[in-house]
Design a binder for these strands. Structure first.
Lengths: 333, 333
DNA sequence: CGTGCATTTGCACAGCTGTGCAACAGGCTG
DNA sequence: CAGCCTGTTGCACAGCTGTGCAAATGCACG
């Protein structure tokens, strides 16, 4: 902004009223006469005036800004969640500051400091884990914090999770019910709590059924990891006939390893289950059976908690949303 | 932000200096004694102080904010571009305000007004087309405007395009060189300038070669549109044996229609070319031959123009970036 | 020691907005 | 007509920061 903006003072001059009248005309609930209001609105329209939210944010209890802290924003699940979050924020009269991080906790800390610098009303953390002292600084200064699918809870924050353990259990049960005899887990080595819980649930169900499973773990949550894991698992002598992949990207990679590299038929020779229900899971080349991340509910819950006046700020809260199994063509029924 | 923030005044008190010394310690190029600086930094660290960028933005020529105005943020190409843009912005010390629009010009106008309200240094428009009076208001007030792959130019803005016409021409040439005799164009009805230019280039090359082409146009730029168009085109008596799809999503849909619905072999019976080089184009189930949107160059050019001090603000500028053809397995060579 | 120059420091003001409060105007009722 | 109540209005102040400028300080040199 290289030049001086149109300000309320200019509008006041053109409309022949005080600067305070202009302010009141743009402040919900403030008192201003109808005729005065009309003159002010006409002047503002003519000059292209918009209230300066920076200045307003200096005075009032909120800036309208919400930091969205995320890594890998271009992956299908993450971008769908960001789309849903920004829609919900805008519907609530807020606007998202997108801070792209590299997954490290230090990167998240830097992002939170930026949020503080802009006095954002809240921060929604989709990647990484801020340390306690920093979250305490945020809370002490009135910023609301929402953590989506993060490792640990932090006092005063809302943590939203999905039922990863339940999904892992269901995945095992579905593969067992489909008659799979050699069941495997293909997981990323990223080690996030969500991935771990999916694996935990899967292992629990297998142990309860008295069945041994094969586990393979490597790389990030990507398609390439799935190619590698799928090639490795399906080249074994004791080749699995049922595989739960902890993300859809991994599952698509496993499927491509099975079909294009090893000429296996899905689900005839090997069943595959994924997790996320990204758009590509529904494409006919994959028709992947998976669990749907409740993206819309995650966004609604996160943003809803920010505008819910009844919420007690210093109260730690946790919400776990259910996931829904989406049956398609990669598993026998 | 419900409570009073730590401010420079608190830091000054703890460090035993004036508030102005604190300000200077955080202003690049300002003069402050080494020992004073150390005391200020220690106090700031202890109190968790971050400069208030809102207040700073009220005083200085810039807020550090850049509006990113986009629709369909969850699609592969758009999300990749947003990821690249946010990275470049952060490297340049700026931060993106993500405004999710619905593609309509009215929605973009509303987004730009929000950008004005936050006195953003710039706006990068990825979807929709703002009207002239509004862009003039922005420019008059010092905001920089960058339009990426938009329809029309606007005085004082930078327009960045890619060589869509060249790509369309190359697509036809590649299909002709592959021996395709019945060549078709599968396009979205969205009608954006980029889509139109790809079609224009394709038609030009066909006309020059004296070859008639078949055109099918429908729906948004989605996978489902590709399924529908592919099913329609490939069910005809005069079935095409080479199809240029104006986006990769359409191409993936056309490929799935060909293989899973009509049992055609690619590229033996029908060649397919897409546009964008989304991640899924490289997946082994598709191995799509396509043109790569230079996402990193788009982002670098856009953000570079914002920080390029030599650029003349009132000068209309246009940059066209080349696209690179990516050969994979959907066309014979 | 005095002078000149560079560095440092704090005061006062400005940027733009919202708000508390006093003064005023208008309408209604006793 | 006077008093009361409601709505309207503008003043003065505050929020937090950067900056111009004058005063103070420190250092080097003759």
């Amino acid at each position: 902004m290289g030049k001086r903006q149109v300000s309320a003072r200019d509008v006041a001059q053109l409309a022949g009223v005080s600067r305070t009248a202009v302010s009141r005309a743009f402040t919900p609930g403030a008192s201003v006469a109808k005729e005065t209001r009309a003159r002010i609105e006409a002047a503002a329209e003519q000059l292209g005036y918009q209230v300066n939210h920076l200045a307003r944010g200096l005075i009032t209890a909120n800036t309208g800004l919400v930091a969205l802290i995320a890594a890998e924003v271009q992956t299908p699940y993450r971008s769908a969640l960001l789309a849903a979050l920004t829609e919900q924020l805008q519907a609530a009269g807020k606007i998202g500051l997108l801070i792209n991080t590299d997954r490290s906790d230090a990167s998240v800390a830097q992002a939170l400091k930026q949020a503080i610098a802009y006095r954002t009303d809240a921060a929604i953390v989709l990647s990484g884990m801020p340390d306690s002292s920093l979250t305490e600084t945020c809370l002490r200064n009135g910023m609301q914090l929402v953590l989506i699918n993060r490792d640990d809870e932090r006092a005063g924050t809302l943590m939203i999770r999905v039922d990863d353990i339940g999904a892992g259990r269901q995945a095992f049960a579905a593969l067992a019910a489909a008659g799979c005899r050699h069941i495997a887990l293909a997981n990323s080595a990223a080690g996030t709590a969500s991935l771990q819980d999916r694996a935990i649930g899967f292992r629990q169900a297998a142990a309860e059924a008295g069945q041994k499973i094969t586990e393979a773990e490597a790389g990030p949550t990507s398609y390439q990891t799935g190619l590698d894991l799928g090639t490795g698992l399906l080249s074994r002598k004791d080749r699995p006939d049922g595989i739960f992949c902890t993300t859809d990207l991994i599952a698509c990679g496993v499927m491509d390893a099975a079909r294009t590299r090893l000429r296996l038929k899905i689900p005839d020779e090997v069943s595959v289950i994924g997790f996320d229900d990204i758009e590509q899971a529904g494409w006919e080349s994959y028709a992947l059976t998976t669990f749907r991340q409740p993206v819309e509910d995650l966004a609604r819950t996160a943003v809803g908690s920010l505008v819910d006046l009844a919420r007690e700020h210093n109260l730690q809260a946790r919400k776990t949303l259910p996931v829904q199994m989406i049956w398609r063509g990669t598993i026998r029924r």
